[in-house]
Amino acid sequence: MTCEGCSGAVTRVLNKLGDVKFEIDLPKKLVWIESDKDVNVLMETLKKCGKEVKYNGTK
């Protein structure tokens, strides 16, 4: 994730998925997600943006 284009894409796919609350930290390349959904579902959704996705654990 390197620019507003990426974070915009992440925002749209997560909104489309629905039932998620999230915060994007572009400088740190982090997305904080609050959701009841499975981690794998969230990861697959983020991967759609064509970026590498790494699970950093819970807060």
């Binding site: 620019c3 284009g5 915009g8 894409a9 943006c49 064509g50």
Partner: peptide, 13 residues
């Protein structure tokens, strides 16, 4: 919604 070359690249890929 694209803003830079990395956006272009991810779509092309």
């Amino acid at each position: 919604g694209m803003t830079c070359a990395s956006c272009v690249q991810s779509i092309e890929q």
